[in-house]
């Protein structure tokens, strides 16, 4: 899914670590061996992964909110079933990822706390609102499309549990993108008004989708270490270009106009050239001041607080049953 955390890294890496161990570790990574949770690893590698995987997980969880907004208003039973399944998948993807992060020695409770307190980040894209039904299609097509571009190389990430979780996620993600595109196709074919609604959704989601790949390579200071550790396989700009090249023809097939007057195909390079991304907007949203940042965090906090009695009751029930088993054993002795 959503991997902007790839662009940040803990900086205290390798300060006091044994140079031989670090070299042996790097040799294993260079040989494309997978690193497993109990293996020795540099502290910076561990911290980078904990943050990246957990932010990826948080993005899946928060990502349920903008789409969940439309479940009760889906236009047909088919679309409602698809949207429910998709949102359930996002929840599942969050859990695969939390499970991978926990192998690095951090607890689920800590990770949840970091999300709820606002300490941890999640993908900036989920701080935009879903205003019309076309937004649901646009999210599947663009947001999941961008996520897939990011996640396919993560299947080859050097950390075993992350790579295995990504393989599962990628297998499931393709349905997300296809249902979104199909939904939009149906809309653009039905009426002028619906086609306009789709164009409006594209206008609003296009640029934030491009921002999902993170800052430009010239401004992304931490890429090199993540690339050396084989956590990251392509740079932000490489992935963004791949996404644009794949997506522009799909927009044209829908009969839509990409909201970028600089967009032009370069025959020589075979790539689509595009205009300047509004990095001020990106920084504003990442800093917590996007259209829905506060609403998203409030919704997660409310869900967590409202579910407290369920967690308590489940544990109380387990305790009661364990006590009864214990009492029965004593009685039998």
């Amino acid at each position: 899914m959503y991997t902007q955390a790839l662009n940040a890294r803990d900086t205290e890496a390798g300060a006091v670590e044994d140079a031989d161990r670090v070299a042996a570790f790097q040799a294993r990574v260079d040989a494309e061996e997978k690193i497993e949770p109990n293996d020795w690893m540099p502290e910076g590698y561990r911290k980078t992964l904990v943050r990246q995987i957990s932010q990826h997980a948080h993005s899946e969880i928060v990502g349920m909110l903008p789409e969940g907004n439309w479940i009760s208003r889906a236009p047909t039973l088919k679309r409602k079933a698809a949207l429910l399944a998709k949102v359930q998948d996002e929840g599942g993807h969050g859990l695969y990822l939390y499970s991978a992060a926990e192998t690095l020695g951090v607890s689920r409770e800590e990770l949840t706390e970091q999300l709820l307190s606002g300490k941890a980040k999640y993908s900036s894209i989920f701080n935009y609102p879903t205003l019309t039904w076309a937004d649901i299609g646009a999210i599947g097509w663009l947001v999941d499309g961008a996520a897939i571009m990011n996640q396919i190389p993560l299947c080859r990430c050097s950390f075993g549990p992350y790579s295995r979780a990504m393989i599962r996620v990628c297998k499931e993600e393709s349905f997300h993108q296809r249902q979104g595109y199909e939904l939009l196709l149906e809309m653009v074919r039905s009426s002028k008004e619906q086609k306009e609604m789709v164009q409006d959704a594209l206008n609003r989601w296009w640029w934030p989708s491009l921002m999902m790949f993170g800052p430009s390579d010239t401004d992304s200071k931490h890429s090199a270490q993540s690339m050396a550790w084989k956590i990251k396989r392509f740079t932000n700009d490489e992935l963004r270009q791949k996404f644009i090249d794949a997506t522009v023809p799909q927009a044209h097939y829908l009969g839509l106009t990409i909201p970028d007057d600089k967009l032009a195909f370069n025959e020589e390079s075979g790539h689509w050239e595009f205009g300047e991304i509004d990095w001020d907007e990106f920084m504003r949203v990442v800093a917590g001041n996007g259209p829905c940042n506060r609403e998203r965090l409030a919704a997660r906090n409310k869900a967590h607080a409202d579910g407290a009695w369920v967690r308590e009751a489940a544990l109380a029930y387990s305790q009661k049953r364990a006590d009864r088993r214990e009492a029965a054993r004593h009685a039998a002795e």
Partner: peptide
Amino acid sequence: EKTTPLWEVFIRSRTGMAHRHCGSVHAGD
């Protein structure tokens, strides 16, 4: 709050293979 215990999950696929580790879940029992 008390922490919810962690369980490792193993699944046997329909192809008749051995149970294979696939991840973990948190649950009370």
